[in-house]
Nucleic acid binder design. Structure first.
Lengths: 198, 198, 198, 198
DNA sequence: GATGAATGAGACTTCATTCAT
DNA sequence: GATGAATGAAGTCTCATTCAT
């Protein structure tokens, strides 16, 4: 009945497995974001996904891999939902920048725990260099999306600086927002950035 | 030889004791900043100070207290070296702002590990609420120093917003600086902020 | 082969699990009784059960819980093997009292380490009040069993006093027996008590 | 001025030292009785005597010696205040027994923590055999005092049994008194024993 | 006499990981 | 797929003890 693949697992099984895996990644993502990498246990992740600690190892080699996949997940969804808006050639750069900043705002204002990438960056950059490249790639992609837009009005170097500044401002705003519990800083940052294109 | 004080401890002993405690706080500060709170062990702190792990407990009740004292240390030294510059009434607000941003830049550019307060904020704000008030107090003091200056030119509300934005920009810049290893973002942020007073 | 239950655990697995837990409780009981609460380590308990110290925490939240379960075990087995004899309505109160005292004697004479409840009482009553209620409940149940019998011949108050005295005598006798290594005191105490009903 | 002894310490110094030592023994006695041997720290003892932990080692070789001296102190004061009453040849045995039981009652009813010897017996008899002989000697002396009185009316063996039973009853009563917080059991035990001589 | 400082063993506990079932 | 069981390393913390001053 079920079509078997070369791995001797049926499609439906694979789908379930993929769902289980994906679910775990999402729970891990939330937990790492909220409680940090070192303060999140495999048991926490399993429990959040309705599994026991040992079961997590069916899907993942270990905690590091789980974090890596959580970061990949964040990057993929950010690419798709946010950064891609920079390349929507049907709209003006200014419009696209407005959309992008709005998307950033929506994404982070409701994100309990702030920005996974920023959090993990500060927590692990000196001790888990394996994570650094993923973190850098994420911020690079974000920056490049902004550069792509800012180039319509600024020369390359300046566009690069502004993009970098924009990312920094937003990450800083997210930090302050978490500390103060007030999203106004983040809103102002995005509003400002949106004005950088006339 | 040793001059005895009313506490029956010689100056040299007191100095040594204070030095031992103070030394530990400084080592802990560095380690928490570089490796994070959960990824720094009491043994690490002891070793960095030339002691065994058990000896750290002679000076501190536990790891939390050590972190609290590290945060207090950061606050005290920032107050004295940085925030106080905002209240040097012998200079113009603009000059003072320039001094303050320069001090911030000097302080953080050479600070391996970035900003202890920011790092601990992101790592612990959802799990160690005891730390939150110290973190908030630190950023408040920073903000107030900036407000004090910006009030010379802006109305209260706007000054408050700008101060908040300045802090956020700098913290964000520190994060990006750590990730990219390039202090330019932090320099630009400070330069920008310095222009907010004419 | 293994019959699965609704909990998706085979009988043999369940039995093993229960056995593991139960085994630990019994080892802990012996060790607490012999060496005291504070002088028994989790490593001791684990080793006695053929496990490593960390494994004990798979079954129990901590040392206190282990002690609580050991006390519950003692209470349950005493209820079943000893105190219940007081309520065997097929025999005369006098016969039942004889049976009960005999059971007490058998139980404690071969019990290396004496009476867990009495030992823990003296060791922890001023420092671990969590244990006190379990200890009191144990002695209450014992006393009530005796009251139930003594009421056949004594009025309520006197029965209560005698029951209390009986328990005290036996606990005192167990103490002296441990110190002197001679079970005669305990035998005499039980013999005396058995004569309280004609 | 101060007369020096061969130890190069003046009499007044020796007196102070002896006072310091004695004070420590008394504090240790209280703490061991209340909290048990393993649950009393050298720091606790020092603090109770107004000293720091390290200073206790000026007077004692270690914790065991402190316990030994506490036990010796209990024995000495019991000998003098209680057991000696059995040998007051100016009174009848019956009177002496009454006095002795009354002294026992007074001694233990106000003694927070019960009986040091009984407590230490149950806590350490299987793990610190060094203590056992002191504990046995204490109970032996008590028993012998009783035997001395009971011999006026009972033959040697019976007197020995009764003495043993009396000690056991009182120790059991002290235990129950601590658990229940009601001194009535101890009072009844002593009253009963006092009737053993006509 | 007394203290501050340090030690090191060992306690309780957590946790990532493994593995048979 | 998932679990229960077990591990062992490591982490926080305690404490008896030592010793220079």
């Amino acid at each position: 009945m079920a079509v078997l693949t070369q791995n001797n697992r049926s499609f439906s099984t694979m789908a379930a497995a993929r769902a289980g895996r994906e679910h775990l990644v999402q729970q891990a993502l939330q937990l790492f974001k909220l409680h940090g990498y070192h303060n999140t246990t495999m048991a926490d992740v399993g429990k959040a996904a309705g599994l026991l600690k040992g079961s997590v190892y069916y899907y993942f080699d270990g905690k590091e891999q789980l974090a890596v996949e959580a970061m990949r997940h964040v990057r993929a969804s950010s690419s798709k939902q946010i950064f891609s808006l920079a390349y929507d050639e049907s709209r003006s750069p200014r419009e696209r920048l407005a959309n992008l900043t709005q998307a950033v705002e929506d994404y982070f204002i409701d994100s309990e725990g702030g920005c996974l990438m920023g959090n993990l960056a500060l927590e692990t950059i000196n001790t888990l260099p394996q994570f650094a490249q993923l973190i850098r790639a994420y911020f690079d992609e974000w920056r490049q999306a902004l550069v792509h837009l800012l180039r319509s009005q600024y020369e390359q170097d300046r566009a690069g600086q502004l993009a970098q500044d924009a990312v920094a401002r937003i990450e800083g705003a997210i930090m302050i927002m978490r500390i103060d519990g007030d999203p106004a800083v983040l809103r102002r940052a995005n509003r400002d950035i949106a004005t950088w294109l006339r």
